[in-house]
Design a protein around this nucleic acid. Structure first.
Lengths: 150, 150
DNA sequence: GCAATTTACATAGCACTACTATGCAAATGA
DNA sequence: TCATTTGCATAGTAGTGCTATGTAAATTGC
């Protein structure tokens, strides 16, 4: 057990890190979902944020991006369209495809969401040291990278 | 804007960190939910893990711990009890209360879950440096602390 | 150039996770 | 003891996920 390069110990440590990460990310995400004024689901806000960044996007691309099945996005887009936050257009390059885009109402809603989340979470971060905040920022990058590697 | 202690800039930076954290944790949690062989929801595994650690727990305490309403836990416990993973007992100290505990079948299921998650995620962590992994571990602690501060 | 296939999305039906409102039984308290 | 409070269960509803399947447009093969 003193061997500094015991492979199975390394594997165990990595597995533990992985499990802790899964647990803490899930718990944190659940806490975020309970912030007052957050009427919509996490995936709805991610779709809005992605559409705001990348512009008109096909339903199937959104589904791949959010790691959900295509019908899930279809229904979500229907709901957010009814809300006035999204708009659907037929893709001029492919009559089968539907392009989804965010409306100005959607942008406003997204900004409001971001503001309430920032107001809620940022004050909690003040307690932590600069080093801790750096760790947090590095972790966000890593989690996003991990998310890509399905 | 050169002032090294501009409070509103600090606040913006913290807000950005908070928003990135929210987004990446949610995306990562979603990815985890899609790992093959993960039949159950995130909250189900968190309940099993918590019960495994802390022993018999009241329904209302579970609800508070998981940040969900009490009926949500009641239904989840019913389902996991039907699955043979949980057991319910009347609290001898309070006839109104129900104590929930994990069965040996539940422990086995939890171990299998942990193993498949570790096998799935740990290999991805190998790519990162020791410093990165330290940041990740620190971040898990911070996310859990943040989750407490509802 | 047209039939067969494939692709993109929508719809239907289901399971599960949430919520609020409410009911019932046990505990508490005046 | 009777009223109130507390702990949980049930009912009803909305939203998110899935698979299976339908429809229309694009592509492919001959």
């Amino acid at each position: 057990m003193q061997d500094p390069h015991n492979q199975s110990d390394d594997a165990t440590a990595l597995g533990d890190t992985a499990l802790e990460l899964i647990r803490s990310a899930a718990r944190f995400t659940r806490m975020v979902a309970r912030v007052p004024g957050i009427a919509y689901s996490s995936v709805a806000w991610r779709v809005l944020a992605d559409l705001s960044e990348q512009g008109p996007t096909r339903v199937s691309d959104l589904a791949a991006q959010q790691r959900v099945a295509q019908p899930t996005i279809t229904v979500l887009v229907q709901r957010l369209t009814a809300e006035g936050w999204l708009e659907r257009q037929r893709d001029p390059e492919d009559g089968r495809a539907t392009l989804v885009l965010i409306t100005s109402g959607g942008e406003t809603a997204l900004q409001n969401y971001r503001q309430s989340m920032a107001e809620r979470i940022a004050p909690l971060l003040v307690e932590f040291s600069g080093k801790d905040r750096e760790a947090l920022e590095r972790a966000t990058t890593i989690m996003l990278q991990l998310s890509e590697q399905v």
